[in-house]
Design a binder for these strands. Sequence first.
DNA 1: CGAGGGGTTGACTAAGATCAACGTGCGTGG
DNA 2: CCACGCACGTTGATCTTAGTCAACCCCTCG
Lengths: 234, 234
Amino acid sequence: MHTKLLSDEVVRSARMSADYALSTGTRPARLFGSLGETEFVRAGTSIYMQDDTASYLYQLINGTISTFLVLENGNRRVTGFLSDGDYFGSIFSDHYQASAEAKTDCTVVRYSRQRWSTRDLAQSSFGPIILDALENELKIAEEHVLLLGGVTACAKVAAFLLYLSKQAARRGEPANPISIPMTRYDIADFLGTTPESVSRCLTKLKQSGAIKMSAHDTITLVDRGILSDIPRGY
Amino acid sequence: MHTKLLSDEVVRSARMSADYALSTGTRPARLFGSLGETEFVRAGTSIYMQDDTASYLYQLINGTISTFLVLENGNRRVTGFLSDGDYFGSIFSDHYQASAEAKTDCTVVRYSRQRWSTRDLAQSSFGPIILDALENELKIAEEHVLLLGGVTACAKVAAFLLYLSKQAARRGEPANPISIPMTRYDIADFLGTTPESVSRCLTKLKQSGAIKMSAHDTITLVDRGILSDIPRGY
DNA sequence: CGAGGGGTTGACTAAGATCAACGTGCGTGG
DNA sequence: CCACGCACGTTGATCTTAGTCAACCCCTCG
């Protein structure tokens, strides 16, 4: 236990980039510095499948990725939409708990887990970075719980739009005309509703003037007050 | 960075108890060995409130605790029901993200966070234990997402009963006549439904022979097959 | 040009939220 | 010790919401 896994220099540079990124409000650009392999993934491509051996730990550098799982009854559940800087890859498990799929063209850094286990890495000087990854995963799940707990479908959809806007702001993009890289089916499976309901709610929000839709995948948030507090019989 | 915070002896004993507990299928009895203060909490008592300064990190030794938060619109969301061994107390934040309340008489160990931050502790020899706590928090949130994503209210309630049974088995209690220490309101706020719906679903499950209720807070799971796969028009 | 996938809308239906009444157990105070 | 209040639980009646089935539009791609 507590073996020295990596050279101090590599560790220092990785930490530096992480600190820098955090201080500027964006996310660290690299997980393991030069140790990770950068990979480019085309939109619509699968990155890994549920139950596969978890050979890599990933960090998303650029783009949007969805993670989802298929239940025994055949239902699909989207467990998260990942944004720049997010870590993914079932950090505690030796098999992927969900499938991961690129919704846009993406850049990811992947790091082989063959040689070192996550727990060993956490013991090494990389501990703080592993902690960042865990904090990240936890925040995603907690945010998801809040969205899923919403009372009406419209409340969920509105909260989801605000969530996307916050994600965009986090990675330095303008928070207002937000782009929706995922399909209505993805959104529905994420929010625990149906694509039809998502569509209807967007229409209602559009009619009430809360949002504007320039295209199916481009939405402008006009009145955040309405979005953040959808009344019952909206 | 990486200062030696705690004596090796204390660390070793804490690790030993954690390893022992994990190997027997139960949870570690103590987080920080003799460093934590043991506290007894009466049923119905608040342990801490949302937005308070997070002075302590907690581990539940015995009993059931619920964590919940109140949204701006006044809605309450129960974010988790904690069981023996579970860690809680907003590990990454300096203010509690939710309130915590004892549903039964409880024994907890609390550890002051005044002197050492969580991240510093993770860097110390306690790293593995902090990792356990994080893995624990993550599992709770992921489980919650699965329950909340359920299609019908009855499916959620049935899944919730199986979840409680699994929790009971984890802490070595018999998995079958399960005790329900929380109210229907708590369950409803946890599952994203209403107390009336919870009650109705339980009645249906009782009528179909899937469960038996000896009291409001004692349920026997009779047919787990029914519970694990509730059809649409149940 | 046709096929297919995603998106929207409409009509219908079923699930569940709401409002309300009532029952039960428990604790407190007369 | 009993009576009362109160919180929780259950059940019923009603009505809103949203899931389902279906048609149609639009766009892209072969």
